[in-house]
Design a binder for these strands. Sequence first.
DNA 1: GCGATCACGCACG
DNA 2: CACGTACGTGATCCTA
Length: 703
Amino acid sequence: MKTLERPRRTSGGRGLFTSFHPGSHYVSTIDEVRALVDVVITQGSFAFDVETVGVLSHHPDLTEQVDQQVKTHVEALTSTSDAITDRARENKEQAMTKTIALDPKRNEVIWVGIATNGYSWAIPVGHPCGEVLVPEEVGNGSTIPPTGHRKILKSGDESLAKARYHIPAVFADPPAQLSRAEVFEALKPIFFDHSLVKVGHNVKFDARTIAKYYGELPVGPLHDTMLVQHALDENISSFRLTSLISTNFGEHNPYSKHGKVGANISTTPFSIACNYVHLDARWTWMLYQKLIRGLTNPLRQVVEQDVRVLEVLMDMEDIGMQVDSKGLASLGEELDSKMTDVHSEITAITYPGFNPDSVKDKRLFLFSAKRDGGLGLKPNKETEKGQASVDHDSLRAMEHKHPIIPLFLNWAEYKKMKSTYVDGLLEKTNKGRLHPNFHLHRTSTGRLSSSDPNLQNVPRDSSIRGLFKADDNSLLIVADYDQIELRIMAMFSKDENMMEIFTKGIDIHTGAASLLFDKPVAEITKDERQLGKSANFLTAYGGGASKLSATSGVTLTKAREIINQYYEQFDGLSLWKHKVVMQAKKDGYVTTISGRRRRLPDINSNKDDLRSRAERQAVNAIVQGSASDICKKAMIKVHPKVRSFGGKLLVQVHDELVVNVPDNDRVDYYSGIIKEEMGHGKDLNNVPIVVSSQSGYTWSEAK
DNA sequence: GCGATCACGCACG
DNA sequence: CACGTACGTGATCCTA
């Protein structure tokens, strides 16, 4: 095996007739691509990385969005001019271009970086510029701008006032480059070979990006440095490649000598970009090697599981979920008109210019003394920083005190719907579909998270979920675990009463209420069941009497009684929780069913609040993390089954899976398969697993 | 007037 | 003293 070459200093060519070669990593001919493919195949695994740009003119729908953004931006300004509008447009266009570059469905590749043992390469396929001919010039306002960059006075003359200016660099033309089509064709053998391990840093992005040029997703196994790092340490603030390199390679700054790419790779000189690209791939490769060497069981199995989930998630992201854009738009208009009404009512009661989105305005109006123009109300609770809270709970508690308060509540509800779910989702639709990002490394418990958009927090209220639709000739099936977290607690603790409730198939909240109030299950009232439910939640989260009294409305004394009774009735559970905390204090971490760890640095802290928090987290991490393990295992099993009958896994919401299936007479069969693969009818050490499912043409019908 | 960051509130499990 | 997330908005500080 060849040892790693030292990265070569690039020549940084200047002038028109420089025939530079950015180094041995630079791949400029198709034969070189073929040669690197041969090398990669002999190595069995490789890291890859793509650099992408967004081209706004390719996306008329987004150009329209920019127009809209500029319009609303300018409308909000106090004064306007052509120059301000132009600058606003430039900013919005730049921002949109950046978003496109990060959207695998819309971006374009301009570089491919590939690395394996002893090698790294950079393949340009559309870098827009060559070397710098004339450097950029930035005036910070302390000088008179050069002619041509000065303000034009009303007289038509150039202003000689000192002012800021920016003259972009002038670049030479870029060298001739291979086309995307021929490069990806030549690289096909390495991206579609099941025997080659393909490694990336956030590999779903790179794989989905290049999928455009193949018409299908690259095949696994796909490995990800982020996953490995997360299994080794979930308490990491930044998972950026540079951060992970400096922590894993002793503060070494991999890019220091070789020029840093600015915010935008497409305005970076060719040779510097070339260096950066091969180094990125190389460092991804080296980081991966280093991290997996540090992986021992059970963390190795954790990563193996997540890698399989990752491939499922990539498919889910790429398929996306259909939404009714027109429905969203008309819901938006509905909300707008409601908001207009509420807003004018609010203004009538308060004053012109009152901003119902401003916590400060609301606080001042509600709580300042009457002589100061306020209502003189007494705050219900404080925020973390000690200010009077104006959140939903506080307002509800004083709802009857003044007619403005229900208006505030209505405003907040409509505003949230409009901005987050109507506008927020609309601007992310692509050909009528939403393609979320699912992350395996952003939670400390091992749960998934979703972003851009987050499809895991779509309101259950049917107004929004009703606009998420099955494909044509399809149905949605939603299958969810019944009380998975409490079942996991029963499994771990082997608490007799809890086991009995589950094995007998009794509703767990009713069962808990029955034990709390010493009454037969049949006689439990709705209120009593609600208390049982609150108490059950309390154990999973580790809350105390004050929280119980706050969430259920009983007195503090009553809450204490209930908690004591709960611990007595579920003594096995209490004992288990105690053991968990002891174990966590000894080891510094807790472990889930699949072997994932949550490290708790504060578990032995001298500070009571920190330590108590860590103790609650210890218990909760096992429960939440194990539930997540079960759902991940289910996804791995469900995915191929569902595909085999033409279905698509669309979304995971922690304990539920949303699946699109063909709308035919076999729907019951499909749900049966899904439930079976999720483990319905099986058990966790004698605690039965129950999965229920529903189907419908929209997400709300299938809830 | 702009971007980055914090505070707050709130949608979900 | 309830666990885990994502994200929109306003307020504030910073900088050109």
